[in-house]
């Protein structure tokens, strides 16, 4: 797994290992800066944003990459159905009863 890219937005954490020129982190990317095209193609971003179809994406993107993002999407769907443990409400309400009015 390629882990030698500094994936942090700013300088919150110093680099912990040498980087190659093409993976040297940018100092800081402000919100308005243009994104340099790297691993993720514009078509893949558009597909992940629901702007183009599977068929359109398949023309330009590797099947393995599409499969990876679909797997991540399926996993996210499962997480999207996660409910809050009932203990949260019980504990919060008990603390509120102990305290009284806000």
């Amino acid at each position: 797994m390629n882990t030698n890219r500094d994936l942090n937005e700013g300088s919150e954490r110093p680099a912990t290992r040498p980087t190659t020129p093409e993976t040297t982190p940018r100092a800081s990317l402000a919100d308005g800066d243009a994104l340099e095209p790297r691993l993720t193609s514009p078509a893949l971003h558009a597909w992940l944003d629901g702007e183009i179809s599977d068929a359109s994406l398949a023309i330009t993107e590797r099947p393995q990459v599409i499969a990876m993002w679909k797997a991540l999407g399926s996993d996210a769907d499962k997480l999207r159905n996660t409910a809050t443990p009932s203990s949260v409400e019980a504990i919060v309400m008990q603390k509120i009863r102990d305290k009284g009015r806000p």
Partner: peptide
Amino acid sequence: EALQALLEEKYA
């Protein structure tokens, strides 16, 4: 971009 860099070697 960052996640693809980290995950694609194993999954893609």
